[in-house]
Design a protein around this nucleic acid. Sequence first.
DNA 1: GAGTTTTACACCCCCAGGGGTGTGCCGCCA
DNA 2: TGGCGGCACACCCCTGGGGGTGTAAAACTC
Lengths: 223, 223
Amino acid sequence: MTAAPDARPITVALVDDYDVVLKGLAHLFDEYRDRVLVAEIDTNRAVSDAVDVVLYDSFAQPESDHHEIDELIANPRARRVVMYTWNFHPELVESARQKGVHGYLSKTLTAPQLVAAIEAVHAGELVFSDQSRRAPSAPGLDWPGRLHGITDRESEILALITQGKSNADVAALTYLSPNTVKSYIRSVYRKIGAASRTQAVLYGVQHGFTPDTHRIDHWMGGP
Amino acid sequence: MTAAPDARPITVALVDDYDVVLKGLAHLFDEYRDRVLVAEIDTNRAVSDAVDVVLYDSFAQPESDHHEIDELIANPRARRVVMYTWNFHPELVESARQKGVHGYLSKTLTAPQLVAAIEAVHAGELVFSDQSRRAPSAPGLDWPGRLHGITDRESEILALITQGKSNADVAALTYLSPNTVKSYIRSVYRKIGAASRTQAVLYGVQHGFTPDTHRIDHWMGGP
DNA sequence: GAGTTTTACACCCCCAGGGGTGTGCCGCCA
DNA sequence: TGGCGGCACACCCCTGGGGGTGTAAAACTC
């Protein structure tokens, strides 16, 4: 299990709405290009290449039922679909399982662990990370505002607010309590110097917290 | 007084933060290029050409004391400074007078009236429009959202909100009652389909309600 | 003339949001 | 070990903002 079942690296497409998130994730595979190759990066675009595995990052997804998973499962170019997320709420895990995902992986996995999990999925296994409580994201991952000292969780909250979501919406989407959302809002406001939601949203618009819409083919000379 | 005192057209610079506002204003002079020539259009930029008259449009200015007037008066390249506005609140008129403006003109003036007023200012007169109550803007003027059915007043309110101002701030800046501001907010939300302030701000960001920052020289072949 | 729209404003009601306080757990570091 | 930061959450208090109702005057349209 330490090498791919065949000699060709596994091709993956990375899917999410935030450029910086996907680029950080893509870089996780830099040292594993003999085993896993990033063929495509899609922000808000359908997967266009035929790939072995689609890795779908759930950062700041605006729909809680993840209808985008349905689309990825139905896409003939996506051989295997894997969810990549912090969120292990039982409803979500079960829903994804029933939609037919081949893997449900934690963003806390280190790069080698992630590569191994992708290989297992590619080999036909169903791989569900065990995750009982929130832990730090794997080193190397990225998210909007990270360089400004904004944590990954705060970043997701601010991204959802910048999409126009109310606190109640954000709570429902993240499976957090409304009180928790308020706490995150307070802490991120302090970090960006916002005195109101509008100011926070304007900051978000100007600093990469709005969804992107483009595709990157041939990431670092990939196929 | 129907022709300029000398044979050279009066050169004017137009100053405001909103591109579409200034372009609409510039077009007012299209048929009067023998008398008034637009030499420069500045959004958030200092006047760089030597001009006869600077026409300073007050649309959605974020500071009520108009410190920008001080800068224009002090600018040696601006021979005469004229305020162009809907707002005839006595405090504002008096403040501008004391700062040394050479004219305080209403946006309700028709193009010929405006040209005549500019000529009078150029000739050395102090020209203050008489304006007791709000009337419709002159035909030909423009503002963000006009094509979407948003009135000039609604447009200014939404522009200020999109700058991150609270209702109280907006009321102070526009010399309106907070109740009036709320009424405008309600009506503009209906027109743009916004259910919250954040949604309205996101609309504003995407539809030209944020301040611009550039200069246009040689408007339509001008000097 | 009647109806509509726009400007300007009042008042009632209420909740979404944000200020504050605090708890508990975990991981990390000096 | 103590302190700090992050995640997750509770509760209190209050106001900014937005839903609603209405008035008045002027301009515009059919």
